[in-house]
């Protein structure tokens, strides 16, 4: 008998790849928007950006934001209702995390089971979920700062929200780099995210 175990249900794989597309579009168009007024004192090379000019980048950014938000909402709801988020990402313990982190840094951390995340993975995945949440909330303040007074105040005002939005982008970008590196080291995980097993 040949039973294929599905590690990632189809809805989750769709969530994952839509999120990847939305994030890349938002990041690259966001870089072009940043370049219109580079408040951190450096420019991002325009060859890395999306949109061709500020207006084009804004069109991409304010279209992809709906994809990121709707897809993220669907992911969180289905993950909470199915119990998958809790099962896969919790618990995280300090001792276990430190031990897994030490093992990971010395190249000793095993990835033999695709349906079981080690402590470092759990932390990384939870962190990127929180990071995307911060990106969306700070993005709302930038998009409509007058219409979200509570959120604006919580984030310290419009100008502060710009910096938070940029930092959260950088956090997401850092996650993406590590994520791609780990996928390159363990190509089986890429296969699983494509075909489910």
């Amino acid at each position: 008998m040949n039973i294929t175990v599905q590690f990632h249900p189809i809805w989750l794989r769709i969530n994952h790849w839509l999120n990847a597309v939305a994030f890349l579009v938002l990041m690259s168009s966001g870089w072009r928007i940043y370049d219109a007024s580079p408040f951190l004192g450096f420019r991002i090379p325009s060859s890395l950006t999306l949109g061709g000019w500020l207006g084009g980048a804004l069109l991409w950014h304010f279209a992809a934001m709906w994809l990121l938000a709707a897809n993220g909402l669907a992911y969180l709801l289905s993950g909470i209702v199915s119990g998958r988020l809790r099962q896969r990402l919790l618990p995280i313990g300090v001792t276990a995390l430190l031990s897994d982190l030490r093992a990971a840094l010395s190249g000793q951390l095993a990835h033999e089971r695709l349906d079981h995340y080690n402590q470092v993975q759990r932390l990384a995945y939870l962190a990127v979920i929180l990071d995307l949440l911060v990106l969306v909330l700070s993005g709302l303040v930038l998009w409509k700062s007058v219409q979200f007074p509570l959120l604006r105040t919580l984030l310290g005002g419009y100008e502060q929200a710009r910096r938070i939005h940029f930092l959260a982008m950088a956090g997401g970008g850092l996650f993406l780099l590590l994520h791609l590196l780990m996928t390159a080291l363990h190509p089986r995980t890429l296969l699983a995210m494509l075909r489910g097993h």
Partner: peptide, 12 residues
């Protein structure tokens, strides 16, 4: 120029 370059160039 903006119309043409706005989206076609953007896609890389």
């Amino acid at each position: 120029r903006r119309h043409l370059l706005g989206s076609s160039l953007s896609l890389g």
